[in-house]
């Protein structure tokens, strides 16, 4: 798999570290325990398109949001995490 870093262009996956599901959101502080258990421990395991955090550890050290098909490794988009959070 190769990931197109917005800063470094296309690089091999060995330069990146997977940093988890990019769809989970921290619950409110007073949210019920079940919401926190879900946030901390439970993850979907989708077969298909998924948004994930990847860290360009051996490159520019950017956090990226990669939308990718988990069955085929086809990558639909890569954005910096800051760009996604500002949107």
């Amino acid at each position: 798999m190769r990931i197109h870093c917005p800063y470094c262009c296309t690089r091999g996956v060995e330069e990146f570290t997977y940093r988890g599901d990019a769809t989970v959101r921290r619950p409110d502080l007073d949210a019920p325990e079940a919401a926190w258990v879900d946030y901390v421990y439970l993850r979907d395991n989708p077969a298909g398109p998924h948004a994930e955090y990847w860290y360009h550890a051996a490159g520019c050290h950017s956090w990226l949001v990669v939308r990718r098909d988990t069955r085929t490794h086809e990558i639909f988009s890569v954005q910096t995490a800051s760009e996604v959070s500002e949107a």
Partner: peptide
């Protein structure tokens, strides 16, 4: 290094962070 060093990709004063 695992990057393309062909002059069309990596020329004079090009910089890459890699391993």
């Amino acid at each position: 290094v695992p990057i393309d060093l062909h002059p069309r990709c990596f020329g004079l004063s090009s910089v890459a962070l890699t391993q």
